[in-house]
Design a protein around this nucleic acid. Structure first.
Length: 550
RNA sequence: GCGCCCAUAGCUCAAUCGGAUAGAGCGACAGCCUUCUAAGCUGUAGGUUUCAGGUUCGAUUCCUGAUGGGCGUACCA
């Protein structure tokens, strides 16, 4: 039973019989409960076309609805012509039973069942550890992948990396220099080398295993040692974060399979590229939709090496060819312009880019006591993502990065995140869950036969707090749908806050376990269970844990 | 200069496809624990939604312009 569908159909019929051809009906949840459970603006939308007064027209629509019926108790016209509908408690009781039956599946949708999605994110090259700058997209991707799965997508989590090219030579040189410095402290470190302390760790491992026998060794061993160490570190951090990628896509495989040259040849054939100053240029000034100030871009340098754009295009062509129904990339705002060139290039080659969705998140500032802080435990001034997790915990890290809309700049209040108290918004939600678990444990002792209870008298849930909680719980699937439609997991958090708030209020005003009122206790316990289910399912999407005790 | 993102309470942010009296948390102030977790609850104060126009039954939301901020504007990725 889907109440929105039910109401939509009813109003459509009413409009039809009042002379509106093919009406479209938009329903909303009013912010103010005095305005009912569902409101509709159809009267205002169509009154003008029909030359009628919106309020009168609304009355006419209501008359056609033939109320009350099983699910709608009454309707009223309000304001400039809103039709406000009041839903029966019976509907909510049915819904409550449904939540308790579906449990971990309540809120899972099938709107994208049978479809596949590919989400690519993190994608740092193996030249260092993940640092806090990677945190936002790491956390966002984790939540968005979950969100997509909840709407029915089969999700492939992908990581794109490059272990070839100049940056790896640089890493090799850096590791070598640190290794050499163990024996000759005055040996010069390359100016553009990787200054992080982790390079010293890698060098120390090599020294431990090989002593000084590598002084004249080839770059290769240093490169491999560096890459292996970095990748291990990245994977470890992701593992600590609770993230598992299905595919690690290596950029160099695009060279080996000939896809880079293929793409390049195709540009030449279509006259979309030309040579100048020894380099190959792509006519991005023509391909980009916004031609203002757009310049052509180099895709193959004079040295013969492609710039990142060419493999990026080959990579996305590969993803398109793999046949996903949805392809998502997550980038920080510092990469905000480049994807347009990549998409424009692909379109120039005739590929359909409509399935590619690029999520750009704005940058993060770490703030303490109202001032921006450089977070670092070490001399090299790098605060790794792992340091952050160890400092404030995975749940808090995940929550703070996801709790705000991605397209606004994020201030990460590190002092607040460290706070193990009521000030911390994560705990507010988790506390509600723990509180319910505690009650359920107590209930098992007071009412040992509760779990086998037969029918529950839901009509006993008549207090304002209980009804309000029931109503908010039933909206969870809609919230999942709306958060997924815009790829905005923070909407789940906003919603869960409302759930927790309603639960705490219910708890405060309604004693759940009362040995002298078994029937009422059972009904309230069912409500508690439903609230726990919704909180838990929401936590699953955001990617935080649901503690049973705090 | 140009492009993208942003501007809402003292602070950090929400606000359903353009909806009704713009909401939370923190901070401030005042209350509530011999009863299921006080990491909780209740109340008070706090707003010309940066500014100026436009579109319409209705604008925080859409359009134009201004101001202020972030990011980018490489033969780096």
């Amino acid at each position: 039973m889907d109440i929105k569908q039910y109401v939509t159909d009813k109003i459509k019929n009413a409009l039809g019989s009042l002379g509106v051809a093919e009406p479209s009906v938009i329903l909303e949840r009013p912010k103010d409960t005095a305005h009912g459970d569902i409101s509709c603006n159809a009267a205002m939308m169509y009154a003008k076309k029909l030359g009628r007064n919106p309020k009168d027209f609304a009355e006419a629509i209501i008359e056609q609805l033939a109320l009350p019926d099983e699910y709608i108790t009454k309707a009223a016209v309000a304001g400039p012509g809103f039709i406000n509908l009041f839903i029966s408690d019976k509907y909510y009781a049915t819904k409550l039973a449904e939540i308790n039956e579906l449990k971990g599946n309540f809120g899972r949708l099938n709107e994208n069942a049978g479809k596949s999605a590919n989400l690519e994110w993190v994608s740092a090259n193996p030249t260092g550890e993940l640092h806090t700058g990677h945190g936002r997209q790491t956390a966002l991707g984790k939540a968005i992948a979950n969100l997509l799965e909840w709407t029915g997508y089969k999700v492939t989590r992908e990581y794109y990396y490059n272990n070839a090219g100049k940056q790896m030579d640089n890493l090799a040189k850096s590791v070598y220099a640190r290794y050499r410095q163990i024996f000759e402290p005055e040996y010069e470190f390359p100016e553009d080398g990787y200054a992080g302390d982790y390079v010293k760790e890698i060098a120390a491992i090599l020294e431990k295993e090989h002593g000084d026998t590598l002084i004249d060794a080839d770059d290769k061993i240093f490169r491999e040692a560096g890459e292996n160490w970095c990748f291990k570190s990245i994977r470890q951090t992701l593992h600590n974060f609770g993230i598992t990628h299905d595919i690690f896509f290596n950029e160099s495989s695009l060279y080996e399979s000939g896809k880079i040259t293929e793409t390049l040849e195709e540009f030449k054939k279509r006259g979309l590229s030309y040579e100048k100053d020894g380099a190959v240029w792509l006519k991005t000034s023509e391909l980009l939709k916004n031609k203002k100030d757009a310049a052509d871009k180099v895709i193959v340098k004079a040295t013969g090496e492609p710039t990142y754009r060419l493999p990026d295009m080959a990579y996305h062509i590969d993803k398109v060819k793999r046949g996903y129904d949805l392809i998502i990339d997550i980038f920080g705002a510092d990469h905000g312009d480049t994807y347009k060139e990549v998409l424009a290039g692909m379109e120039g080659l005739g590929y359909d880019t409509s399935k590619i969705k690029v999520i750009i998140h704005q940058m993060v500032t770490f703030v303490q006591d109202g001032k921006p802080v450089k977070m670092s435990k070490r001399a090299d001034n790098v605060y790794t993502l792992n340091d952050l997790i160890e400092d404030i915990g995975v749940d808090v890290t995940q929550f703070f990065f996801v709790m705000r809309s991605a397209n606004t700049h994020l201030e990460f209040d590190i002092a607040l995140a460290r706070e193990q108290s009521d000030k911390n918004p994560v705990f507010y939600l988790q506390y509600a869950h723990a509180r319910i678990c505690s009650i359920l444990r107590n209930a098992a002792e007071v009412f040992p036969e509760y779990t086998n209870a037969g029918s529950i008298n839901y009509s006993l849930l008549s207090s304002p707090e209980a009804i309000s909680l029931m109503k908010i719980l039933t909206v969870f699937p809609e919230t999942v749908a709306s958060a997924a439609a815009t790829f905005e997991p923070h909407k789940i958090i906003t919603y869960l806050n409302e759930v927790a708030e309603n639960y705490h209020r219910f708890y405060h005003n309604n004693r759940v376990i009362d040995a002298d009122a078994k029937e009422l206790s059972y009904a309230r316990l069912k409500l508690c269970e439903a609230a726990r289910i919704v909180l838990k399912n929401g936590f699953d999407i955001i990617g935080i844990s649901a503690p049973e005790r705090m």
